[in-house]
């Protein structure tokens, strides 16, 4: 009886829950220093991409890993964020504040509007309808001939902070991106552990059970969908600043597929798995494309093999043996 005293206070908390993310962020924080040892601009730009993709993937993890909502249109929010920068700066508004407000506001609006319809559906219908909404936005972007249409548009420069070019340096953009990622990680970690997060996780486990204790699935999922969209919108803002270029390609359905892959590769339902997944994905792409012209011939089968054999993602690799 003594041994069975219930661990009421966070029964599954283990040092591991903090250790791995801590190491990951420490490594990311060391990047600007290490970058000086090599081609600095290249390393910083690649690692900023890792951070930005991790941010988008982390928000997708909130949906897939915690909410059980397999969204196949998440790149649409990247696109909204990126176009918020592109469209506003083409009208002379280069200040980050309004751009971010537009990125977040646009993402939330789109999430609410599309979520109201998509979240009425289940399972595979949800996958396909999110895909369709993503495509809808993609085609809208290609038709925006005033903003580059198919070809996209080049930005006049990076966003301004309080009228100053704080983001101009590569290291500055990296640090800002990393800070956003850190804030998103801490924020989402709290959200997933909160009352709201518990409802979201419960709905993934057993929707009818949750409705039978009084939770209306739709509302909680819609809020989660909007929250994830907002975070991905911020990632889109950063992505536009990183590449200095905005085109419909950022929200093609393949990008949405990439994001799902990153989350699954890293490990669902862990948040920091998104960082591991993004690093592994982008570095593998970088290395493969460096050595092989047709690197996708290797990359595609790798994806298939990863699905067939590496279940639980990178996060799960050490965990299985450690336990």
């Amino acid at each position: 009886m003594a041994a069975a005293t219930p661990a009421i206070r966070s029964p599954t908390a283990s040092p591991r829950d903090w250790l791995v993310p801590l190491v990951l962020f420490a490594l990311l924080a060391a990047v600007p220093l290490l970058a000086k040892l090599g081609p600095e601009g290249f390393i910083l730009s690649l690692m900023t991409r890792v951070v930005v993709v991790a941010l988008a993937a982390m928000s997708l993890d909130l949906l897939i890993g915690y909410g059980g909502l397999v969204s196949f249109g998440h790149a649409a929010f990247l696109g909204i964020g990126a176009y918020a920068v592109g469209i506003l700066s083409s009208h002379g508004i280069e200040e980050a504040g309004p751009q971010l407000a537009a990125a977040i506001g646009g993402s939330v609006l789109f999430a609410l509007a599309s979520g109201v319809i998509a979240l009425r559906t289940q399972g595979v219908y949800f996958i396909m309808i999110t895909l369709a909404f993503g495509q809808m936005l993609f085609f809208l972007a290609t038709a925006l001939s005033g903003y580059g249409g198919d070809d996209g548009m080049t930005l006049p420069g990076r966003s301004l902070l309080f009228d100053r070019p704080w983001l101009k340096g590569d290291a500055a953009l990296y640090w800002v991106s990393l800070a956003v990622l850190g804030a998103a990680y801490l924020g989402l970690r709290r959200v997933t552990a909160s009352r709201f997060g518990r409802v979201l996780r419960g709905l993934k486990e057993n929707e009818i059970r949750m409705e039978a204790v009084g939770f209306e699935a739709f509302r909680y999922r819609l809020v989660a969908y909007a929250l994830a969209g907002a975070v991905a919108g911020v990632a889109g803002f950063l992505l536009a600043n990183l590449s200095g270029f905005v085109s419909p390609a950022v929200m093609s359905w393949q990008r949405s597929g990439d994001l799902i892959f990153v989350v699954v590769l890293g490990g669902l339902g862990s948040l920091h798995g998104a960082i591991l997944g993004a690093a592994a994905f982008l570095l593998a792409e970088e290395v493969l494309s460096h050595y092989l012209e047709h690197w996708r011939l290797v990359f595609g089968p790798l994806l298939v093999l990863a699905v067939l054999f590496a279940r639980g993602g990178l996060v799960g690799i050490g965990r299985g043996r450690g336990a």
Binding site: S10, R190, V191, A193, S194, R195, F196, G197, R198, V199, F215, Y220, V223
Partner: peptide, 8 residues
Amino acid sequence: SFRFLRPA
């Protein structure tokens, strides 16, 4: 249950 920050 729209409380987002305190651990449940």
